[in-house]
Write a protein that binds this DNA or RNA. Sequence first.
DNA 1: TTCATTTCTTTACAATTGTTATCGTTCAGC
DNA 2: GCTGAACGATAACAATTGTAAAGAAATGAA
Lengths: 180, 180
Amino acid sequence: MNKQTTTNASQWNKFRHLFKQQEIPAKTTLLQEGQISRTMFFIDKGCLRTWVNNDGKEITTQFFFEGDIVSSIESFRTNQPSLYSIESLEPCILQTISQKDFQKIIENSPEVKKEMEDHLFRRLFQCQQLLYTFLKNNPQKRYEELIERHPHIVQRIPQHYIASYLGITSVSLSRIRNRK
Amino acid sequence: MNKQTTTNASQWNKFRHLFKQQEIPAKTTLLQEGQISRTMFFIDKGCLRTWVNNDGKEITTQFFFEGDIVSSIESFRTNQPSLYSIESLEPCILQTISQKDFQKIIENSPEVKKEMEDHLFRRLFQCQQLLYTFLKNNPQKRYEELIERHPHIVQRIPQHYIASYLGITSVSLSRIRNRK
DNA sequence: TTCATTTCTTTACAATTGTTATCGTTCAGC
DNA sequence: GCTGAACGATAACAATTGTAAAGAAATGAA
């Protein structure tokens, strides 16, 4: 979800007083895997990632940048433990809102509620497409697709995070890069 | 979603007259990739699969059995082309309902509407977990997990469908099976 | 039953990836 | 600027997977 591209940006402004600004350094954990999400983050500056633990190895599942809204939305909505952690990759400036206050907004703004439902559909769509790139392509093709579709990720994020995001080791990604 | 386990099974019965029974042989295409979904299927008997085309090769993305509700839900709701095809793997008896009639049910039953929203969250959750098994595990582990979590799939579905569902070739799956 | 189709296994070879370790380079904080 | 940590490239070897082809086994329809 993206504040800027929102059809009703003014809707958000009505509730601006409910947000708190927060500055954090790089590598700060905002939500730990297994915990219940009680906060939602809007990124003003910097970038975040979500990751899962796999036998001590971190596997990155998503990247977020300026304008993105980040939360374990399933956990936030259903009060179930989050499947993943949320962490900053750079020093960040965030706008945060609590679950309670966000609930208030939802109740008072059908536009925002509608937007959340659409957001959910988009999330499902994105998740499906990501899954399909794993079913369809080998690591090399997945990397090429990433460069094509999300060049800003490749430019901005350290390679070993990208490697785990592609489901391969950093060694293998390094080989793929030097193959062409 | 599952009719049987529904908290409000009686809700569905109220609208029974809107469903049509349909008998189809195996390998019947119910929805083609790129088309817009206008029908929803409840499986009384048999099983279906969804699949995507990848350079002429079919890749299975999901299996469905008795009691399951099947549709390209994103396409059904948003009127956008479906990312995948839906096809029968066995002769099936289905209960079908049109998009229009289903809309009527949604409008007349808050319970069913709520159920659909929950269904959407579950779909997202499932999709995420499936994606994570690709990020976390190699093909052998994915196969072992499938046996553990969904033994009925392994027992009922021909292996080459399962292979593409796991993201590998049928040759590789055969090797994995004979490894242990 | 019989025949054709589908499904599964096996083989040999090439290509890719994982693992482990080492070695420069770059970066961030003091 | 200095220093330690983070990052990326490379090498060698083992293990896994893909590809193509051939054949055995199972299945289903006439």
